[in-house]
Design a protein around this nucleic acid. Structure first.
Lengths: 195, 195
DNA sequence: GCGTTCAGTCAACACGCGTAGAGTCAAACC
DNA sequence: GGTTTGACTCTACGCGTGTTGACTGAACGC
């Protein structure tokens, strides 16, 4: 995301916006690749083609930069609109969409990559990502174990995301969506419908 | 794991072995709590009640210390001995045992905590932990999708481990083994037995 | 007993990090 | 067209890190 096009004589506000976007993009890339600790302000600045101090000027602090790059508005509409039969399908679509849309993927990977080692990232995943999905899924499931079943369904899709996209486990990374849905669907259905 | 008992006049080899064990224990604790990047040699030394230089003298390098602390011999006997009907049960036992045996838990958490941000830890999880389990499970499952089904089963239990023990998602952390097995079992069974 | 060995400590190095403040130069304004 | 504004850069500070080599003192072997 090195945006080398810096055409001269651009409005000041426009330049400002572009460099901010460039920094944010570079930050997301590096956070997605390496996680919070191994991502340095200097590295972000270099990839953005900018001075390190400018990064601070825009975002204040490394933690603030992370917060800005990791703001992840999870779209749970697909989950809320699904009935019991569609839920597994919707849940799988939900996670695959997040990682295969190039727009969303950077953010998703950046948050997930650091969620085990950076407290703020862990909180985001626990409360926003898993939390909101769990609430949505639990109401559809219903019954005494609804929360547990929803949490387990989330844990499975979380495990799939991590294994497929972050760890790149061969058997999962090389498979296409259709096979994934065909095989995992019935398993998630068993979580939705108590035997 | 601060082993304050340093009774005077102990054989040299004995002292050496004790301090090594003390360092290794402290390292595992900190790695499990904070991950590789946030764990410092000085922190390990302090928790072990020892000089930082001694840590280097024992293990050579921070990466070597991690390798020593993260050596995780996954016991897959339980998986190999299981038939199609027992597999889900065995798989769940397999992961719960690793995290609820105080002996194993430190290592398991240490490896898993860093597996998204430390290349060596990622390799361990991908190739040793998931890899060996996948091979064992796939032979039991059989059929055309065996590898994929095994990998997905692993991804689900990986997600459960992470959500329950590392992220401490409330709905999963507070539930006991029996409920976990009762609810997750049928889902994993659907992965083992194609509909 | 005495010289040797070696577990353990001390003090220091070089490096990379996040961050701060003064300086620079072109766009913006009147 | 001169002054002001503000986007951006330069330089440097202080700190914590992994790592090293010289030192110390107690267990060891004879």
């Amino acid at each position: 995301m090195v945006d080398d096009e810096k055409p001269m004589s651009l409005t000041r506000a426009e330049r400002r916006r572009r460099s901010e976007a460039s920094i944010l993009g570079a930050a997301r890339e590096l956070l997605a690749e390496r996680g919070f600790e191994r991502t340095t302000i200097r590295g972000v600045a270099e990839r953005a083609g900018v001075d390190p101090a400018l990064v601070m000027q825009h975002f204040g602090t490394k933690d603030d930069l992370f917060a800005a790059a990791a703001t992840w508005s999870v779209p749970i509409h697909g989950l809320l609109g699904a009935g019991r039969e569609d839920l597994p399908h919707a849940a799988i679509e939900h996670v695959l969409d997040a990682f295969e849309d190039p727009e969303l993927r950077g953010t998703a990977e950046a948050v997930l990559r650091s969620c085990l080692t950076h407290p703020a990232a862990g909180t985001i995943v626990r409360e926003q990502v898993l939390g909101s999905a769990q609430a949505a899924v639990a109401t559809t499931i219903g019954g005494p174990d609804a929360e547990l079943r929803a949490a387990l369904l989330n844990a499975c899709t979380l495990g799939l995301s991590i294994a497929r996209y972050l760890l790149a486990v061969p058997a999962l990374a090389d498979v296409d969506r259709a096979d994934l849905e065909r095989v995992l669907g019935p398993a998630l259905q068993a979580l939705v419908d108590p035997t």
